[in-house]
Design a protein around this nucleic acid. Structure first.
Lengths: 336, 336
DNA sequence: CGAAGATCGTGAATCGTTTCAAGCTACGCT
DNA sequence: AGCGTAGCTTGAAACGATTCACGATCTTCG
């Protein structure tokens, strides 16, 4: 395990360590012959830069030392395609700006969230996009003080940059569409743990119903936001009296489960029950009854959040926090 | 940005830097009063350990210095639920052993793959699980020389530990099941870019067909492994003559698209065409026609790979490479 | 021919943390 | 009192890469 260091490369090439470093960082100021000799030595020894050492001693002597060229993206569950698409969008923006992206998921544990942010702080990441925020504001303030910029994903906060989708508007759009189809006995299907955005979708829908003078929005809460939970919800729906004529689901996975089980139980979609989902995952387009749904600009969300983080990093203390709100979009297919 | 360092904490608490370090790493050898004073100072100054410096100076003076307590998981596409489940399984094992996990995806780019592995090498990660391997063996050998252990995911290699699912057996199981149902006009639906495992599933199925003396396996290659690609495949299937009676799909997403479109086009599943998928994603269970599919032990795969990596790291040079092969399992539902 | 640039290389200082040998106290024992 | 010991603390030496003020050559031109 002889950690090949820059020093051994220098010895092998018959130059000083400073020159090796120059070959690595400003190849153009080194004479070609020397450069080739150094590169050859690097190749022969299989030298790989030690990023820790590099970060430790960094920046011209006045600048604060040692920020990594990396951002973290902390979300609740990376196995959820919504989250991984947002992360991917962010990664694209960061990559373009020459930054690495660290994907971290908290799996709904406050402990893991704290751990993830602590990790990023210890790594001296340039900043972080967080969607899951269980941590108290004091602790966040502290990380920020230590120089890491924090952008909220899908949440808002007075002292933060944030990028979010207008979920209230999404709920409104969905409910208005169902009302326009004459479906005024409406149910909202959701599952726990219920993320804030889902709560807002429900509010938006409820408000629109109230404004239109239609009946109450019946809320069915399942134990997850998954297709199988949707199937259970469908069974509950058909046993209600009267059976709702419009169903708005907290996400597409639920909606797909609801539609499949409704069809299975003999209800026609959308004739008997109109169903509308949320997210526009790829499957929505190609399920048995193509799903009408609310499309969220997912990659764009991640991309915009990343741009905010990059701006905040670049602008330094002159920075003013900005809140970006993206509007979701109704995709009309066949289920409603 | 005054990077609060251990030195300032020491000054504030009126102790030496060595003592602060001891509070951080071996709290029990420090007198309680001192420890409290140091902890208070840390709290007041908002001190966060600099992980780069820590890693740089590490290990008792003989051991090779500076391996991070982190492993990388490099897969092709983290937005694919299969990959993220494998990664999650690995993360669980690593977490239990006190290691961090870095998720990296290559998005089918050899460049990004090289970048990802280079990144891990530069970070001095303890090791890496890779499923995407476009990189030549010489370069891998080099990383390994530099002390990083490499475990192959879903691939095998003579000089590596590896964990994989027996895809040939998976193809065999699927084809045998369809044969047992009397479906001997069989098609295989796949998409490009076609991962090695998919190629093996196809081989397994073809071999089983040949052994049974049934007809050729017709192969339909689409431009992706997605539901919409599946829909296109379905349209191609019904225009074949004779129309195949059994369809084996490279993954469940394709299969769901195939089933939905077949139903839409008026074919009955499984009466007219039996369809079998691969992966057993959650949706397979709850699609319009619950999907018969081959279940892969995904988290377990990640977990086992992680255990191999941990073992290799622990055993050092005494280590002997092991190949783990997990067997997939037939899940009979309604589509076949 | 000699001074002024231009072009390259050098090597010591530095980043923040951990480790370890050595030092310091307070205490118990003879 | 003298000595040993246990319990804490100290301070300096690493770790590996980067930077920067200086040298050392080599060109160019009055």
């Amino acid at each position: 395990m002889p950690q090949t260091s820059i020093r051994e490369v220098a010895r092998r090439a018959g130059v000083s360590v400073g020159t090796v470093s120059n070959v690595l960082n400003r190849p153009n100021i080194v004479a070609e012959a020397t450069r080739d000799r150094v590169l050859a030595a690097i190749e022969e020894l299989g030298f790989v830069r030690n990023e820790s050492a590099r970060r430790l001693r960094q920046g011209p002597d006045d600048r604060p030392s040692g920020r990594a060229r990396a951002f973290g993206v902390v979300v609740e569950d990376l196995t959820n395609p919504y989250a991984s698409d947002v992360a991917r969008g962010a990664e694209l923006a960061f990559e373009e700006a020459g930054f690495e992206t660290l994907w971290l998921s908290t799996d709904h544990s406050a402990d893991r969230e704290r751990r993830a942010l602590e990790l990023l702080a210890e790594q001296r990441a340039a900043g972080v996009l967080v969607s899951s925020v269980e941590t108290g504001p004091d602790r966040i303030a502290r990380w920020r003080e230590s120089g890491m910029c924090v952008v909220l994903l899908d949440r808002a906060g007075p002292d933060f940059c944030s990028a979010q989708v207008d979920h209230v508007a999404g709920g409104d759009i969905a409910a208005a569409h169902l009302l326009a189809l004459g479906r005024d006995r409406m149910a909202f299907v959701t599952g726990v743990p219920e993320p804030q955005p889902v709560v807002e979708r429900c509010e938006g829908a409820a408000r629109t119903l109230a404004k239109a003078g239609a009946g109450e929005l019946a809320v069915l809460t399942q134990d997850a936001l998954s297709p199988t939970a949707g199937q259970r919800a469908a069974r509950a729906l058909v046993s209600m009296s009267p059976v709702p004529t419009g169903v708005f689901c907290a996400n597409d996975l639920l909606a797909i489960g609801v539609v499949n089980e409704l069809v299975r139980l003999g209800a026609r979609v959308p004739e008997d029950v109109a169903v509308i989902g949320y997210d526009d995952i790829e499957l929505a387009r190609s399920s048995a009854v193509p799903l009408t749904t609310i499309r969220q600009p997912r990659r764009e969300l991640g991309w915009e959040a990343a741009e905010l983080a990059l701006a905040e990093t670049a602008e330094g203390s002159a920075h003013e926090h900005r809140q970006i709100v993206l509007r979701p979009e109704l995709m009309v297919r066949e289920s409603a």
